[in-house]
Design a protein around this nucleic acid. Sequence first.
DNA 1: GTAGGGTTAG
Length: 598
Amino acid sequence: MLFKTHPSKFYSLPHTQKSSIPPIQAFTTLLKSCSSSPYQLKQIHALLLTTGLSIKNRLITHLLTNLTLLGHMSYARQLFDEMHKPRTFLWNTLIKGYVKNELPIEAASVYRQMHLIGVRPDSFTYPFVVKACAQLPELWAGGAVHVHVVKYGLEFVSMVRTELMIMYVKFGEMGLAEFLFGSMVERDVVAWNALIAVCVQNGFASKALGLFHQMSLAGIKPDAVTIVSALSACGQLGCLEIGEETYGVARKEGIDCNIIVENARLDMYIKCGNTDMARTLFNKMPQRNVISWSTMILGYAINGETEKALALFSRMKNEGVQPNYVTYLGVLSACSHAGLVNEGWAYFNHMAQSGHKNIQPRKEHYACMVDLLGRSGHLEEAYNFIKRMPIEPDAGVWGALLGACAIHHDVKLGQHVADLLFEVAPDIASYHVIMSNIYAAVGRWDFVDKVRLKMRKKGVKKVAGYSSVEFNSEFHFFYGGDRSHPQSAYIYEKLEVLLKQIKSIGYIPKTSSVFHDVETEEKEVTISTHSEKLAIAFGLINVRPEYPIRVMKNLRTCDDCHNFSKFVSKITMREIIMRDKIRFHHFRNGVCSCKDFW
DNA sequence: GTAGGGTTAG
């Protein structure tokens, strides 16, 4: 700031002997507040050298720190390399810089170099080195670093241990993380929060809720950060009751009036399929940021309330809130879920032509457009659209087209797309399953077997489908053909009665069900005991009639289950809300909110 | 003189 407005003042500073501010202090202040361009920083550096102050490590450190914060890592590295015997904290600063700029390999190599030269790392070094290891694709470096940590006797340093825990959860090593946590000397609120947050972020939501519970038993008061992670876990699991209880805790602790907490709560309502509660909260929030708006828009989109999503988007712009690229993902997926091709094009073109750097279409937006075009039957157009992409299409983009080929039974294009897709992402089970479903739908069982064989050879395993229902603040999980639930006998009995009833009003099981990008449950399990059917039967037995039955599914639902749910909602007069992998289906009186377009 | 945790999307 100072530099921009009064450059002359700045340049004269170090030379002004008479100045009341000593030069070193002046530099320090300046560099601390400095957020200048690399050019300006270079000038400052040059000035430091000419005034003979370069030996002052303190100033160099500020400069180095500023460079790393601004992302000018190559210049920071150059500065570092010019130093004579940099001390440990300077090494730490450089490593920290690489980690903050998500350059874990560079960070790790600086750490290695440190070792080779014989500079002893300290307790400030490891939090960052471990964080770098957590950003690497494989765990082995992290394991080696853990050994060093033990060797230097730093394993009980709270922050080092916290970072190690985070690293292990990221690599799915929950057991190791829990061991480290359990044997921690002081488990403060931040350590709890770190573990809970990383569990949520890596798909261990029920583990996160378990920890949240344990935390209160241990007498540690949650803060806003804890609540945000807990609410996020509830959203992931789709548990509205526990979500409300969590919010109750926040209110009791007086940490509910925080925009991040409110956004997390908003998201929780959305992910539980309750747009009414979300809207009520949204409307009474004293402040809303772009995340609040985007969450609400996306919420309408995935719940099939397309008009509301688009209306909210224009209200957002009228109120002068700048949409970001996530907001546009919400808008485009609203169009996609409703088959609004023209509107989708209009929004997409607006993004591309806006001139705003932060809303230039990204791969996700392209995938959304491909999905929209493909789902609506414009397969050729979708393919050409990908071919014209200015950025390299990724698996998500090709996957969207493959999914569309499955819906429209286009074997030829499907095969072609699969070839391209498996070049980019050979090991993703769901894409192989879609391809096998494409063949299955047209009766090419020879090819189906080939795909299965290929999967077996590659060791690609499909994910088992399951559905869950929350009841009395507890989860009930069902797999296809599952008989492990204590109420199993009643559930199957109920299911039988339901099938008889709906058959009498026209339900015909679609045994040759068309698969969308669904991964079917085990082959031997008949269609009548798909996990969502069991979950619905369970819900009908247990959930009070005034409440809807909320079923959460990890994969997409199949045609037959979709049809089944419509009929059941009709004869039982119950609302069934089903969340599949990418959207909601609200079944009321025989009709689904998705209008059978998904 | 430096250190650990949070919301949308993927």
